[in-house]
Design a binder for these strands. Structure first.
Length: 181
DNA sequence: TAGGCCATCTGGTCCT
DNA sequence: AGGACCAGATGGCCTA
């Protein structure tokens, strides 16, 4: 469980900014306005509305923080799901976010290459029904088959299609990735 | 101890 | 107006 996530509205996530609100509700609040200050009633009314708008703003901020937290959690969940479908690494260290994205990118490319190579090697008769379209997704355009991240190492000459899918190959031996996309 | 990664907060911008 | 998205700032944790 995430203690922070459990109930952000009850605890106080704003140790700094809150002081302001506390100050606003502090003993400075006048109890009985002198008569000669009655003309300032309006002013006081405005001050009160300022205080209330501060409260509204604070509540809005808290809600926004909560939503943002949820959003990031959803993003992390999606990232975890992505990790789940990627080939496992020998050492069970969890991929970082950027590694996961780059790994996935390379993995997709490798799968596409594998299919492309298999198509090239397969006898035409074995796949008569296969239309040009079926290949288009795997080798579509320049992006898919042109420059994968791990191309830097030796993309064009794998021992076989299965070599392309080797985790360490896909990740470029982990740690090699900076700047690659 | 420095550097990397991460979670969270925050204010701005865009969209509905 | 309110929510989603984004990027910068900040602080904590971990590792070499």
């Amino acid at each position: 469980m995430d203690p922070v996530f459990s109930d952000s509205s009850s605890c106080d996530p704003f140790p700094n900014t809150d002081d302001e609100d506390c100050r606003g509700a502090s003993p400075r609040r006048a109890s009985s306005p002198p008569e000669h200050l009655q003309k300032k009633k309006r002013r006081r009314g405005r001050a009160r509305s300022n205080a209330s708008t501060q409260v509204v703003k604070k509540n809005r901020r808290l809600k926004a923080n909560d939503r943002e937290r949820n959003r990031m959690h959803n993003l992390n969940d999606a990232l975890d799901a992505l990790r789940g479908v990627l080939p496992a690494f020998p050492d069970e260290t969890k991929l970082t976010k950027i590694e996961t994205l780059r790994f996935a990118h390379n993995y997709i490319w490798a799968l596409s290459e594998t299919i492309r190579i298999a198509d090239l090697q397969a006898p035409v008769l074995l796949s008569p029904a296969r239309s040009p379209d079926s290949c288009s997704w795997s080798c579509s355009g320049s992006s898919s088959s042109s420059s994968p991240d791990h191309c830097a190492s030796s993309p064009g000459s794998p021992g076989g299609p299965e070599d392309l899918l080797h985790p360490e190959r896909l990740l470029g031996f982990r740690g090699f990735l900076p700047g690659v996309y």
